[in-house]
Design a binder for these strands. Structure first.
Length: 372
DNA sequence: GGGTCCAG
């Protein structure tokens, strides 16, 4: 198997060594091992490599469906949401769901549980996961956004290992430097940094926005207005999804294997009647090339009246999407794109503006344009 | 004052 060994840096090798030592002898005293690192430092690669050497089942999980899906893409077999892993769900009379800890969970006899994007995990879920008494390796970036309510339970304590060398972008790339500036509290200065730019409205060209692989904003209001403006520029006339439109999924559907945060292109509007005026769409995933098409059913009302509450009986029968040209940083967390356009709304997030902007910038691999 | 997540 040596042929398939990834090339590790000395920092990564030291991390591997520490985690391996913990696994070998330390998990009785210390249930949780915190392997932290800035975005793109190779945390999952290390975890997967260690898992391959273990005798016994390793389970992979993340808080969000999207993060679990990204784990799968990175070779973490069977990665799932923590909710799917440890709870069993019962439907109550009013249509809501009651989750109970599932004693039969695969977590109960795992030799190791690996949790990615752990900055999003809150205290309740973290403690439920720990109640199985199995060793947990948590991966995360303490500089990224915490859950909306409360603190990140795992990122609230000191890391056991902190990876600092970024491999996602080229070393000392402009993106890395901009991200570091923000992380360390310096403010961004208007100008050009390689192919990346920090701009004000006057510097802006439509192509900066339309040419980006993803637009990232802070507020939902901004997201909706960017979505409309971009759709208008692209020539879409209808308020409903059209062939060629870019959509983001808003709720996991494990049966259809679509996940919240997943991006899709509308490739067909199949003819045919659906009950209640539901609208069938044929979609192609934009997150990985060559994936199969998926047929979903949407409720047009969710597009015609965004923000209006949807009746429960309708909700369960359809899938839930929104236009995906612009995303909030909160929903873009865990994803990455080559060329990202950011509308800097960090000042709105008063508790942690630098975490907001850092998370936004580190979504970009090759190029970022930041409108300040 | 602003952002989200999970469950069939």
């Amino acid at each position: 198997m040596y042929g398939s060994l990834p090339t590790f840096s000395s920092q990564q090798l030291a991390a591997l060594d520490k985690v391996a030592k913990w696994l070998k002898s330390g998990t009785g005293d210390q249930q949780v091992f915190r392997l932290f690192g800035f975005a793109g430092t190779g945390k999952t690669t290390i975890a997967r490599h260690l898992a391959a050497e273990l005798n016994g089942p390793v389970v992979y999980a993340a808080y969000t469906g999207k993060a679990a899906h990204v784990m799968q893409q990175n070779g973490c077999e069977g990665a799932t949401t923590i909710h799917q892993l440890i709870y069993s769900w019962e439907r109550k009379r009013d249509g809501s769901f009651l989750g109970e800890l599932n004693a039969e969970s695969d977590a109960a006899d795992a030799v190791l549980i690996v949790v990615d994007e752990c900055s999003m995990v809150d205290e309740v879920v973290a403690k439920d996961l720990m109640s199985f008494g199995r060793p947990i390796l948590v991966l995360g970036d303490p500089a990224q956004l915490a859950p909306v309510k409360g603190e990140g339970f795992f990122t609230d304590a000191k890391p056991d290992v902190m990876l600092t060398e970024v491999h996602r972008q080229a070393k000392n790339s402009p993106i890395q430097r901009l991200a570091m500036d923000v992380r360390e509290g310096r403010s961004l200065i208007r100008g050009t940094y390689g192919t990346s730019r920090v701009v004000v409205l006057d510097d802006l060209d439509t192509e900066d926005i339309l040419g980006a692989d993803q637009v990232i904003v802070g507020r939902n209001d901004t997201r909706l207005s960017y979505n409309s403006v971009i759709r208008e520029s692209l020539g879409f006339k209808s308020a409903l999804p059209c062939i060629g439109d870019r959509l983001v999924c808003r709720q996991n559907d494990h049966r259809l294997q679509i996940y919240n945060g997943g991006l899709y292109r509308v490739i067909d509007l199949p003819e045919g009647k659906s009950p209640h005026g539901y609208m069938p769409l044929m979609l192609q995933s934009l997150d990985h090339a060559g994936s199969r098409e998926v047929r979903v059913l949407i409720n047009p009302d969710e597009f015609l009246h965004p923000g209006r509450a949807v009746e429960a009986k309708h909700y369960g029968r359809t899938q839930h999407f929104d236009f995906g040209y612009a995303l909030t940083v909160h929903r873009a967390q865990g994803s990455q794109w080559s060329n990202v356009f950011i509308v800097d709304e960090s000042e709105v997030f008063r508790a942690s503006p630098q975490k907001w902007l850092y998370t936004a910038i580190t979504r970009a691999i090759d190029r970022v344009t930041i409108l300040v």
